[in-house]
């Protein structure tokens, strides 16, 4: 017979939940509501005078073509970063999974970049691609390609995507490797006996079985590209040239902390909050349905 414990005390469950609720309140609900409140205000920098202006900060944003450019940049940037870092990490993981000797050495080396702080990662790539004296920029010049990300927006975007993806490869690699090792060898061997080549085995067996890991990593990487790449962009391009690398998070910082436009900046972070909430909902609602666990 199954024995179920029940709580007779009405307050005990709330008491046990309290730490979680308090943490959520202090670190999420309270700041989020502050941002929401601030987004309705027009304030001077020192907070000496403030005017409640309802949705005007939002109206200004949505009538600003530059804001839509920033949204666009953000989607291109996060899609490119996620795709590049996931595909490279998967390639490395498949390779490392097949290595028999010196396995640990490969794994250790491939995980190192994760320990590098975003800003440092940005500076490393900046040095290599510095138009006046970076080694890769000079090498490109020798091949007849004029690299100048200080003026060319497209190149600047490529540079921050590479730097952001490079840093995330290590993290993705670990998860893919763990995912690969979870796949029963017998399945793959059976397919091999039936005559399926390595590419066929990968696309029809390994890749679908890896989908829970891939799904999880897509969520993590998109969030990473949205929020954690601030340091890279700040170190490499500061949003320029001509806003071509100004993703939404960077715009929030730029308008709020450099421009001291707190209301406009708060309105942007409220929008950002809704974008992330809806992204997560879409991911769990629709993409997860197609994932086989």
């Amino acid at each position: 017979m199954e024995k179920r414990s029940t709580f007779n005390n009405l307050w005990l469950p709330y008491l046990l939940l309290a730490p979680q609720i308090i943490i959520t309140f202090i670190f999420f609900i309270w700041p989020a509501s502050q941002a929401l409140y601030q987004s309705f205000l027009l304030e001077d920098a020192f907070g000496l005078s403030s005017e409640f202006i309802w949705f005007e900060n939002f109206e200004v944003l949505f009538s600003d073509p530059l804001y839509f450019d920033s949204i666009n940049t953000t989607f291109i940037f996060s899609a490119a970063t996620t795709f590049l870092s996931l595909s490279t990490a998967l390639l490395f993981a498949v390779m490392a999974d097949r290595v028999i000797r010196g396995e640990m050495a490969y794994k250790t080396i491939l995980t190192w970049p994760y320990a590098v702080a975003p800003a440092v990662a940005g500076v490393l790539w900046l040095f290599m691609f510095s138009p006046s004296n970076g080694i890769l920029a000079l090498a490109l010049k020798d091949w007849g390609y004029d690299w100048n990300h200080i003026l060319q927006g497209g190149q600047a975007l490529v540079l921050v995507v590479i730097a952001a993806a490079w840093k995330q490869i290590a993290y993705n690699f670990i998860f893919f490797l763990a995912g690969l090792q979870m796949i029963p060898k017998s399945l793959i061997e059976a397919a091999a006996i039936d005559g399926a080549g390595p590419a066929k085995r990968f696309w029809t067996i390994i890749f679908p079985l890896l989908s829970p890991t891939t799904f999880f990593l897509i969520v993590v990487n998109v969030v990473y590209a949205f929020f954690d790449t601030f340091g890279i962009i700040h170190a490499v391009t500061q949003g320029g040239p001509y806003k071509s690398t100004e993703i939404l998070v960077y715009k929030v910082y730029n308008d709020g902390f450099i421009g001291l436009d707190l209301g406009g900046s708060a309105a942007q972070s409220v929008i950002l909050m809704f974008i992330v909430i809806s992204l997560t909902v879409i991911q769990f609602r629709y993409i997860e349905r197609r994932v086989k666990y």
């Binding site: 450099i258 001291l260 436009d261």
Partner: peptide, 20 residues
């Protein structure tokens, strides 16, 4: 708001230098 305006000027000048 001149801190932000300087940024705008940087952006527009860069667009001019880039020939856009």
């Amino acid at each position: 708001n001149f801190v932000q305006i300087r940024d705008i000027l940087n952006e527009e000048l860069e667009a001019i230098w880039a020939g856009k």
